[in-house]
Computed example of a mutant assay.
Amino acid sequence: MSQTLYEKNQQLLNTLIKQANIEDLLELSKLSGVSQWQLNRLQHGLIVKMSVENIAALARTLNLSIEQLIDTFISYDGESISAKSSGEEATTIANLKREYASLQEQMQQQREVLKREFQQDSLQAIESWLLQWPTAAAAVRKNSQLPAERLLPLVKPIEQLLDEWGIETIAAVGEKLPYDPQWHQLLKGTANSGQLVEVRYVGYKQGDKLLYKAKVSPIEE
Rank of each mutant, 00 (worst) to 15 (best):
50 M>T: 07
55 I>A: 09
184 H>G: 01
4 T>E: 11
135 T>L: 02
93 I>P: 02
16 L>G: 01
101 A>L: 06
142 K>C: 06
109 Q>L: 13
12 L>D: 03
42 L>E: 02
79 E>D: 06
64 L>N: 00
169 T>F: 03
129 W>E: 00
72 T>P: 01
127 E>K: 08
146 L>I: 13
218 P>Y: 00
106 Q>H: 11
90 A>Y: 04
135 T>W: 03
35 S>Q: 10
90 A>Q: 02
56 A>D: 07
142 K>L: 15
167 I>P: 00
74 I>R: 01
169 T>W: 03
172 A>S: 13
91 T>A: 13
34 V>H: 04
115 K>G: 08
193 S>T: 15
131 L>C: 12
208 D>I: 08
200 R>Y: 00
141 R>I: 14
66 I>C: 01
10 Q>C: 12
38 Q>E: 10
108 Q>W: 11
191 A>C: 02
38 Q>L: 10
45 G>M: 01
54 N>S: 15
148 A>M: 15
43 Q>E: 14
52 V>G: 02
58 L>Y: 07
90 A>E: 03
126 I>V: 15
154 L>E: 11
16 L>I: 08
205 K>E: 05
90 A>N: 05
147 P>D: 09
16 L>R: 05
1 M>I: 12
74 I>N: 02
10 Q>W: 08
103 L>V: 13
143 N>V: 07
83 A>L: 07
180 D>C: 08
189 G>E: 04
41 R>P: 01
100 Y>P: 04
166 G>K: 10
50 M>S: 08
42 L>I: 01
207 G>K: 01
167 I>D: 00
173 V>R: 01
110 Q>S: 10
109 Q>E: 15
70 I>V: 12
45 G>T: 00
220 E>Y: 04
214 A>R: 01
86 S>Y: 10
70 I>K: 00
105 E>M: 11
193 S>K: 00
39 L>V: 09
66 I>K: 04
173 V>T: 07
30 K>L: 10
85 S>Q: 11
208 D>K: 07
140 V>S: 01
52 V>K: 03
214 A>H: 06
215 K>F: 00
157 P>N: 13
